[in-house]
Nucleic acid binder design. Structure first.
Length: 933
DNA sequence: GAGCACTGC
């Protein structure tokens, strides 16, 4: 697929550049005249003495703070650490020490939002001026007015983005999208490793010039070294009994062993036994001391004391998440603010908080609490706060300097979720203004240098974990069909390996179901010749009651095979897993900013991810990992790390959040891995179209209200706009239903017809998918949120409950942005108009052949067959999202009157855009983005 | 007439 700069784009770029240079010219001219005036009046330069004074002041403040920190540590903390205070005594110490001074200190430190933002603005202004001076556009030391500055900054931002994009398009003659995009009609499974396969069979392998010679020699060596060949052991006896299993056996070589950490497991387990006889709290304290973390306590505290930012590397099981906040509390960091510890997942935040509150002997929600969406389990007393990373991000909105925290610990930073990436930029920024704030970045990988570099060479503190060794095995040749290979391998393990459960990583629900069927079929054929094999599928959309099955202990003599998606890589831990089968693929979301289309692609995993998977087998004892690819594939074809989410997602929400935090200069925002310029530009364009940003790139009143909602900007806009159409009550139900995604209707394989019929009931009158979702929600509400009703209508209860939670939250937020909750269920046009207000960029018109064409950025799309209007084909539609599967599909489609587009978004659509093709000849899309194949 | 990994606010 080629990417061409077309005339409109060029025109657009030129216009922008023109207006930018014109603006600069004006500024320069004015500055020049000002400078002449200044030259006449000014006498001498006092800049130097001023800055010297500033410097001294800064220095003084810094020293004062340091002194204060020292005093603080010396005064209150020793008491707590000097061995066992009773709980009451400890509470008393905390109470007294926090009663002594905190209000003043807090008041001193607490900067108002305005002050803070102003300060930051000033700093940014400085930087920008420096930049421009470098390019010799402006003259020394001339101050721009604020309005000028803002306009300049925004234009510069856009200018840079466009420049980048034009350069990309001009310099590269043929811009190739990654192969997977190119594939017609989906993804070619066989093609993926084919390059490597060719390499593998290279007849010139002995050629000295062969760049792969070294690798091949290494592999030779490994093969020679290999001792284990599964299936060859006991082969004679086995092959008689299990001929069927070994019909197409796979050969593995043992390549390496992922070392466990040097830790005395027996001692640990021993003490665990002993501690059971003691009182619960004492036992817990004993256990704490057995954690690898404990031995590094003092060193760690010293390092934290000496450095503002510290990168901590610790394998899972080192106890960093539970222990570090406690240590910090014990030495008194909690006296002047809370300790925040962020987790990427809700359950993690909850369970860790529960554990820590137990260890500290306090009630969950008092001194130790957690904060996740829909659930704030904290109180006035809370000093250790575990929270999801997204939640801390939300708190930034209300408290841009995080004044109530003295320590922020970003845990599991290696996972690089969207929220952690944004948090990085923000905490790095506030750390400069708040020298008293301690920052801990904790990661489980060896990639710590990258984190350290990002945080201005912060020191790295390493803690060994508690992990058992894992043996890594590779196939000797690449496998064409990994699903089949995975099944064969699990059977091989089942008959040849000692007891222990098997975990197989597959890509999705469909694959898991197929694998389950095949496995059942094959084991049935073997009858009683082999031990029982229990097959447990697990994926996020599996109903909860079926999920529970994987946690049931395996009966004696049987073996469990867990067929899991990526959910088992990080989100849940299954006990008893000893063997991991890793085909090396994952389904990953990718976003194409050019078309605004998201797609799920099966892609090879990264090395980091492969090691994470392997590690899942070594949690309760030494394990084995079978990789269904060769060592060569692993070393040469897999990326080092997974592409961080921020680089493969729609950024509209991120941009809105940052803008509402007062960060306007997105191009220079300190991302650890900056997202593509194109994605940023697309997000800015969208927000401008939704009138969340004005032409200076500033947040408007509408934008400010939108930012309150934890939703995609288009959904937020829809809600904000519902005020005008007096249907906010109905709109938030729709928004909640849309944001739970597409797991509402349940469609089991054997009852598809029934399920479809049930679903069509909500579509009577061809009202469109949005209204149908509203009907579903309202009917459920009428039955008093009945579970039975859900079963009867093939609707997933879990999703509905989630929708109810979201709806409740949205209702609360409506109050906050002062929008009245009004229901207007009978006026469908009002509801549709509200939807249009948010989703007008997603409009499409029917073409003669039954397909659709999007209006603004023309491309051919289709109505998804699951949509209620799939057979009605209205002339004009509005859709919720575009997904690329076998075709470009619009999901969640509602009919629309074209005049609404001009009425609601006159800045976006002109009359000629919506003129009906029947009355007038359709204008040819000259000079628009074209795709040729 | 299709086919949705996983989180999070």
């Amino acid at each position: 697929m080629k990417f061409k700069m077309t005339t409109t784009m060029r025109q657009f770029a030129h216009n922008l550049l023109d207006s930018f240079s014109y603006f600069l010219l004006m500024v320069i001219l004015r500055k020049e005249s000002e400078r002449q005036v200044k030259r006449k009046t000014s006498s001498g330069d006092d800049n130097d003495s001023e800055s010297e004074e500033e410097r001294l002041k800064d220095q003084r403040e810094k020293e004062e703070l340091e002194q204060h920190m020292r005093d603080r540590d010396a005064a209150g903390t020793r008491k707590l650490t000097e061995h066992k205070l009773s709980r009451k005594e400890e509470e008393e110490v905390i109470r007294r020490s926090s009663a002594a001074e905190p209000e003043d200190i807090r008041a001193l430190r607490k900067v108002s939002r305005q002050e803070y933002l102003k300060k930051r603005e000033e700093k940014k202004l400085e930087e920008l001026r420096d930049d421009i001076e470098d390019e010799q556009y402006l003259f020394e030391g001339v101050k721009l007015s604020e309005a000028e500055y803002r306009e300049l900054r925004y234009k510069k931002e856009i200018y840079e983005l466009v420049k980048k994009r034009t350069e990309e398009a001009d310099n590269v003659n043929e811009y190739r999208m990654p192969d997977a995009y190119d594939e017609e009609g989906g993804v070619n499974q066989e093609k993926r490793f084919s390059v490597a396969m060719q390499r593998y069979r290279d007849p010139n392998a002995e050629d000295k010039m062969n760049p792969f010679a070294e690798q091949e020699a290494w592999e030779e060596h490994q093969i020679g070294k290999a001792t284990l060949k599964y299936g060859s052991k006991n082969k004679k006896q086995v092959s008689d009994d299990y001929q069927y299993v070994f019909e197409d056996q796979i050969e593995f070589i043992k390549a390496s062993v992922m070392d466990g950490d040097k830790f005395d497991y027996e001692e640990a387990e021993d003490s665990l036994e002993k501690s059971r006889s003691k009182s619960a709290l004492e036992a817990l304290q004993e256990e704490r001391k057995k954690l690898p973390m404990y031995h590094y306590r003092d060193e760690l505290l010293q390092a934290i004391h000496d450095h503002q930012v510290l990168v901590i590397v610790g394998e899972t099981g080192s106890g960093k998440t539970t222990q570090i906040p406690q240590y910090l509390h014990e030495v008194g960091y909690t006296k002047h603010g809370m300790i925040a510890c962020t987790q990427p997942r809700r359950v993690a935040a909850m369970s860790v908080a529960a554990r820590v509150s137990q260890e500290m002997g306090v009630k969950l929600g008092h001194e130790v609490g957690y904060s996740i969406r829909f659930e704030d389990c904290t109180s006035e007393k809370t000093i250790l706060k575990y929270m999801t990373d997204g939640m801390l991000l939300r708190e930034f909105l209300g408290e841009p300097d995080l004044a109530s925290y003295s320590v922020v610990m970003v845990d599991e930073a290696h996972e690089r979720t969207l929220s952690t990436d944004i948090l990085f930029g923000l905490v790095k920024d506030i750390a400069r203004f708040r020298p008293d704030l301690k920052l801990l970045i904790s990661s489980a990988t060896l990639d710590a240098e990258k984190f350290s570099d990002y945080f201005d060479s912060a020191p790295i503190f390493r803690i060994p974990g508690r992990r058992y060794p894992v043996e890594i095995n590779y196939t000797t040749a690449p496998e064409a069909d990994y699903l089949d290979a995975a099944i064969v391998t699990s059977l091989q393990i089942h008959v040849t390996q000692p007891p222990g459960d098997i975990l197989v990583f597959l890509t999705g629900q469909e694959e898991i179901e197929t694998a389950e069927e095949i496995l059942k079929h094959r084991t049935r054929g073997l009858g009683t010749k082999i031990a029982e094999l229990i097959i447990c599928p697990i994926y996020a959309n599996l109903p909860t009651e079926l999920q529970a099955k994987i946690f049931e202990p395996t009966p004696e003599g049987a073996r469990k095979v867990v067929l899991a998606t990526n959910i088992a890589e990080t989100s849940l831990t299954i006990d008893g897993i000893k063997y991991v089968i890793d085909p090396g693929f994952v389904k990953m979301k990718s976003y194409n900013p050019r078309t605004g289309m998201e797609s799920l692609l099966v892609t090879p995993i990264s090395k980091a991810s492969a090691n994470q998977r392997a590690g899942r087998s070594g949690r309760t004892g030494p394990g084995k990992c079978f990789r269904l690819y060769t060592a060569y594939n692993f070393h040469n074809d897999l990326e080092e790390n997974t592409v961080p989410e921020i680089q493969r997602t729609n950024l509209a929400n991120v941009v809105l959040t940052l803008k509402s935090l007062g960060i306007h200069d997105l191009l220079n925002f300190d991302f650890m891995d900056p997202p593509p310029a194109e994605a940023l530009l697309k997000a800015l364009e969208l927000l401008f179209a939704l009138s969340a940003l004005n032409k200076l790139g500033e947040l408007t009143k509408v934008g400010r209200r939108m930012a309150e909602f934890p939703l995609d900007p288009m959904l937020s806009k829809m809600i904000v706009a519902s005020e005008n159409f007096k249907c906010s009550d109905d709109i938030i139900s729709i928004a909640a239903m849309l944001s739970v995604g597409n797991s509402i209707f349940y469609r089991p394989k054997d009852k598809q017809v029934h399920a479809d019929n049930a679903r069509m009931n909500f579509h009577t009158g061809n009202v469109g998918d949005h209204i149908a979702l509203l009907k579903v929600y309202n009917s459920w509400k009428e039955t008093n949120y009945s579970t039975q009703w859900c079963y009867e209508n093939y609707i997933q209860v879990r999703s509905m409950k989630r929708a109810r939670d979201i709806r409740d939250q949205l209702a609360g937020l409506l109050e906050r942005v002062e929008i009245e909750l009004i229901s207007n269920e009978s006026d469908l046009d009002a509801i549709k108009k509200s939807i249009t207000s948010g989703f007008f960029p997603h409009s499409a018109r029917l073409q003669k052949n039954g397909s659709y064409r999007t209006i603004k950025h023309p491309q051919t799309v289709h109505i998804h067959p699951s949509a209620g209007l799939a057979e009605v084909l209205p002339r004009w539609v509005i859709y919720h999202e575009l997904v690329l599967t076998t075709k470009e599909y619009m999901r969640q489609v509602t009919e629309l009157k074209p005049e609404w587009l001009v009425e609601i978004a006159p800045h976006y659509y002109q009359l000629k855009d919506v003129e009906d093709s029947y009355s007038k000849k359709m204008p040819r899309g000259a000079g628009r983005i074209q795709e040729d194949k």
